[in-house]
Design a protein around this nucleic acid. Structure first.
Lengths: 333, 333
DNA sequence: GTGAAAGCGCTAACAA
DNA sequence: TTGTTAGCGCTTTCAC
């Protein structure tokens, strides 16, 4: 049940069958038809391993995610996938698995085995060792989200985006603004949270506001983390911020939930703004800086595929993001 | 930069190098050390294609998802992934991409190319053609969620689970209960929604309650869909249900949001119960039937890996699910 | 438009 | 414990 059987049945050579199966132009149309028919009858299944060995191309792209269950990663993954499918490429998923997964082994063991022709990294900053190891494999690489020293990068400018959000709150008249972001999660080495925090702090300072240390809170980029952060921030009546800027919508939803639970009304008692454009946010009136991770995924996939096809890597312009004002932000009382 | 170079440098044969690299017991420890060292120095990267060709094993498993951005699929995918990583297998993701993606091509073109040793299908029911095509590839297969004619299946018993939820509401004294589920989404051929609806209807009828047609609503298994369903169901003051059973937590969260927006209090004016155990639900007090898709993913992965290793496929017992009562359900007024 | 032959990089008998 | 020899199933020159 290989190409050979088809050759035998049709009386053609393996070479011609191979060409016919791929629809190469140097093959007679009648031959192509015949080969295809016989292949179907025989239930022929091509072997990508054999093809890969012969050509050196696997027609597969690896996608590396820090963890799976975050809105942004899932959306971006979907975008990469859509583009790969269009191009007839398979997608190999490398999930570093957050805290639990031993990142090292994941990197060495699988990603380097020439199983893929290119790599798309989600929000990851590689250290020197990792870069060296990946370099060995010599495939095209690109990073989605977050700056990437030495690598191409697609995504929004996080500092700018954070400034935008902060500026919106300042423009409404808020001065007492808290930030809910994240830390580098368990060695996942993600730079995004820090860049957004910097954008926030810089914008606040530039406008002449102080940023109390206690108002830079870790929300772990999750809904539950947002709730915890919100409760910490809003629990006491004294010295409560009038607005909270969250580095992701998931955390913003958590803060809104915490606020409601504490009897605060949004936006009358508290303004909340997030980043992302999460569907839930639209439904509950969350003001946000909207971005399109799916589009970013598609762009990234196209970029590496082009490079696989021999194109010279060109830098990708920053992805668009825009302020979407909804019901969760208003002037302070 | 293949195994050959290492052989040349060390003065050993390709065969020994191959064995050493894999740490086979028939190789001298000193040889293993030496080979590993030289391999490192040379920056050797193994070729999974070559190994796959030679052994017929790709050390990769395919996971087929109908769409990517649903809580259940992401969690289950994570579970499968964790187990595969443990076993040193790669995960190839086949996303049917919902309505847009042309399911046929996806099936033929990629999944059958012997790129993977086994397949895990998420919530998919295959039609005869598809089953035949996949059968060609002859790899072990298993389905997570939903019954699978002719295939092994891991997951909760959806009829039972729906009955449990419905029973909880009935037990509280509700009689006017609506159901929010889903349809077969754009040919994705997912059976779960129907099974849960059946469980609901059967339980209602058995308790002597009628189920108006208009109270079986499509919530598209999404948050937004849940909101729409909730608005349709609760919009008019006359003939409003006192409780809603949603076939997923995401929809239940939507219904709760719609209720709040319409000025109804949960649970005073409306009880809501879901299925899943979604993190957001815990935070907002949603009563639910909790299941563990990640565990289901691990079980499924283990099952197919065992089969790849020659084990006889044994049926998997139904996965556990349990009622978690929180604040969203109460007796009707 | 088609065929013959070499080889992609590894593993797996079988010998030694 | 190590080496020799065949392939695994394709693609790809180079001839015809």
């Amino acid at each position: 049940m290989g190409i050979q059987e088809i050759a035998t049945v049709t009386g053609l050579s393996k070479a011609t069958v191979s060409r016919a199966l791929r629809g190469l132009p140097t093959v007679a149309d009648t031959t192509i038809d015949q080969v295809r028919r016989v292949a179907d009858e025989l239930g022929y299944v091509p072997s990508s391993a054999a093809a890969g060995l012969a050509t050196g191309r696997q027609r597969a792209v690896g996608v590396v995610v820090p963890v799976l269950d975050r809105w942004f990663y899932v959306k971006a993954l979907g975008g990469v996938d859509a583009e790969l499918r269009r191009a007839g490429y398979d997608l190999v998923l490398y999930n570093l698995g957050g805290p639990g997964g031993d990142r090292d082994r994941a990197f060495r063991r699988s990603m380097l085995r020439h199983r893929v022709d290119a790599l798309v990294l989600l929000s990851l900053v590689l250290d020197a060792t990792e870069r060296n190891e990946l370099q060995l494999a010599e495939h095209p690489m690109i990073v989605i989200g977050g700056p990437a020293p030495g690598l191409r990068n697609v995504g929004v400018d996080d500092v700018v985006v954070a400034g935008l959000a902060t500026g919106h709150l300042l423009g409404l008249g808020h001065r007492r603004i808290a930030y809910v972001g994240g830390q580098d999660e368990a060695g996942m080495n993600v730079a995004v949270p820090y860049r957004r925090r910097d954008g926030f702090v810089d914008t606040m300072r530039a406008a002449g506001n102080r940023v109390p240390r206690g108002w830079l809170v870790d929300g772990r980029f999750s809904f539950a983390g947002g709730i915890a952060a919100g409760e910490a921030l809003l629990g006491s009546e004294v010295d409560r911020p009038t607005a909270v800027f969250c580095a992701s919508d998931e955390m913003a939803l958590g803060v809104m939930t915490a606020a409601t639970r504490l009897g605060l009304r949004v936006p009358e008692d508290l303004s909340v703004i997030g980043i992302d454009g999460h569907e839930y946010g639209a439904s509950v009136g969350l003001t946000t800086i909207e971005q399109d991770p799916e589009a970013q995924g598609r762009v990234a996939a196209r970029a590496v595929l082009a490079e696989v096809d021999g194109a010279r890597p060109r830098p990708v312009p920053p992805s668009p993001a825009r302020l979407v004002v909804r019901r969760s932000t208003a002037p302070p009382r």
